[in-house]
Nucleic acid binder design. Sequence first.
RNA 1: GCGCUCGUAGCUCAGCGGAUAGAGCAGUGGACUUCUAAUCCACCGGUCGCAGGUUCGAAUCCUGCCGGGCGCGCCA
Length: 553
Amino acid sequence: MTPANLADTVLSAARAVFETRGLDVALLPAATTVERPRNPEHGDYASNLALQVGKKAGVVPRELATALAEELRRRAGVEAVEIAGPGFLNIRLDDASLGAIARLVVEAGSAYGHNSALSGEKVNLEFVSANPTGPIHLGHTRWAAVGDSLRRVLTAAGAEVTSEYYINDAGAQVDRFARSLFAAANGEPAPEDGYVGDYITEIAKEITDADPGLVGQPAEQALPIFLARGYELMLKEIRESLERFGVHFDVWFSEQTLHGGGAVEHAIEELRKQGHIFEDGGAIWLRTTDFTDDKDRVLIRSNGEKTYFAADAAYYINKRERGFDRCIYLLGADHHGYIGRLKAIAACAGDDPQKNIEILIGQLVNLVRGGQPVRLSKRAGNIITLDEMLDAVGPDAARYSLARSSTDSTLTLDIEEITKNSSDNPVFYVQYAHARICSLLRNAEEKKINRAEVYDPSRLSHERERNLLKTLGEFPGVVATAAELREPHRIAVYLEERVATDYHRFYDACQVLPKGDEPVSEFAQSRLWLAEATRTVLANGLDLLGVSAPERM
RNA sequence: GCGCUCGUAGCUCAGCGGAUAGAGCAGUGGACUUCUAAUCCACCGGUCGCAGGUUCGAAUCCUGCCGGGCGCGCCA
C-alpha cells in the first residue's frame, strides 16, 4: 500500500464514520495525505484528519480520532492504529502491505514517480539566456542546472515542456563585444566600455586566422564582420559548454529576429487592441500601471528606437502565439524588478498573469575561496567559467552541488572545496548507493539467484527494510511536489537524505546473498526485489537532476 | 527613500501549520580475512535574527523592527 492509497483509505474510513454518526460528509476535504512521522514509535504513517475536521464538525478531535481508528483497523493491510496527542492517528501497516511497494516500483520501472498533474499543458521554460558576449560562468550555471532539472521534473509531471534560451543579440553590448574583438585583433587596448579576458583575444585570433586580411582594416568595414563571426563563435562555445554540462535547449531564440521581423510592431498592434497603448512626448508607451507595474514603460523611444522592453513584450506575445499555455521565466534575484512589468505585459495582452506567465526568482551564487569572498567581474576578466568548473569536478558533481539547494537561498560555494575536495560531494553518496546495488545484482546473477522467481513481500519485516520501503513509496509525492512548487532541489534532498541513507543502512544490517558456501537464505529473493526497487528510484531520481547513475565506482 | 528577497548548529544547507527542529562537512570515539568502508554506528554541537499576533499547535502564516543581498532609466 502506497501513502496515496493509505490516504484514500483514511478518507473513506472518515466518510463511513461521518455517515454512521449523521455528520455532514461535505465537511471532509476532497483529498488528504498521510505523513511519515519522524519518531518511529508513531507508526509507519500518521494522519491529522481528525484534528483538521473535528472542530468544523463539532466533534472533539480525539473522539473523532477514536471512531476513525476503529473503522481503520477493519481495513485490509492496516495492522494497528493508535491515537496520540490531540488526535493524531498513528498507523502501522502489515509487512505484506508495505512490502508490496517494492513490486510496484520494479514493475513501473523508469515510469515510477511520474504523474499526470500537468498533462496537456504546453510549457515554455526560459532560463540562462546569458548575453552572447562572454563564456557561461558560475553566475549563470545555477540556472542551467536548476532550469534543466525543472524541465525534467515538469516533464515527469506530464507537461509538454520546451526549454528555451533567449539570445540578447540586438543591443549595445554586442557592439561593445565587436569593438573589443576588433581592438584585440589589432593589438590595441580594450575599449573603455569593452570586454576583457583571454576569451576575447582567443576569439579575435580565431577570426583573423580564418581571414588575415581583416587586420588593419578600418572599423566601418571590419566591425560588422567581427560582430557576426564573434557572435557565432561565442554562441557555439556557450552551446558546447551547456551540452557538456548536460543542459539541453530545444529553442535558441534570437532577439534580433524580433526586431527585424516585425514582431515588435505586431505586438504593439495586439496591445493596442487591448487598449493599453498611448503616446507621450513622441514615444509609444505601454500602460503597465493598469496592472502590476509601478510605472509605465516605453516601447518606442521618441527617436524611433525600440526599447529592450518592447522586445520583451514581443517575445512574450510570440511565445503565446506559438501555443504555450504557461511561460515560465527563471531569473536571478538581480532581475526581480522585472516581475511587475513582465506580469503586466501578460495582463495588457489580455492574458491571466496568474496562470499564463510565471516568474521564478532565484538568489545569486556567492563565491568564496578558502573562506575569503571573491568578487567576479566579466570586465575585470576574473570570471570562473562553466568549462573551468567542469574541468575541475565533472558535470555530475557540478550539477548536483548547484541543484541540491533551494533557489530561495543564496548559495555560497567555496572554490577550494568544490575543486580540491570533490570526493566530499554528496552526489557520490547517492551514486555509490546505485553502484553498490548494481554490484549486488551482478553478484546475484553470477550465483544464479534469480530475483524474478519469488517475491514474498511479507519477508521484508526488518526495521531497515520497512524504512526503505516507506521511503521508496514517497517518491511519486516528492516528484509531484517538486513539479508543483517548481523546486527540483527536493529530488536531491530526498535521494540523499532518504533513499541513499536508508539503502546504505539496510545494506549494512541485512545480508542479501549467501556468504561463501552457505545456502541461499529465505530472504534473498525478496531483498533483491527491494534492491532493484531502490535502484529504480535512484536512477529515476538522478535522471531528474541530470546526473548519471553509474553501475560501478 | 520606496520595493523585492534572505536570516536555522563552527561551516554549507534541508524542513509547502504538526509530535523531542534534521543532514553533510568540521571535531571525538567505535565497526572491514565474508554481498563495494565513496559505507555503517555512537558522541559533541541550536534563545530557528528580535518582538508581538493568528490557533488545539508556528522555523513555517500575518505585522513591526534589526541585519545581509538586490532592484528602482525614452540603458541593455
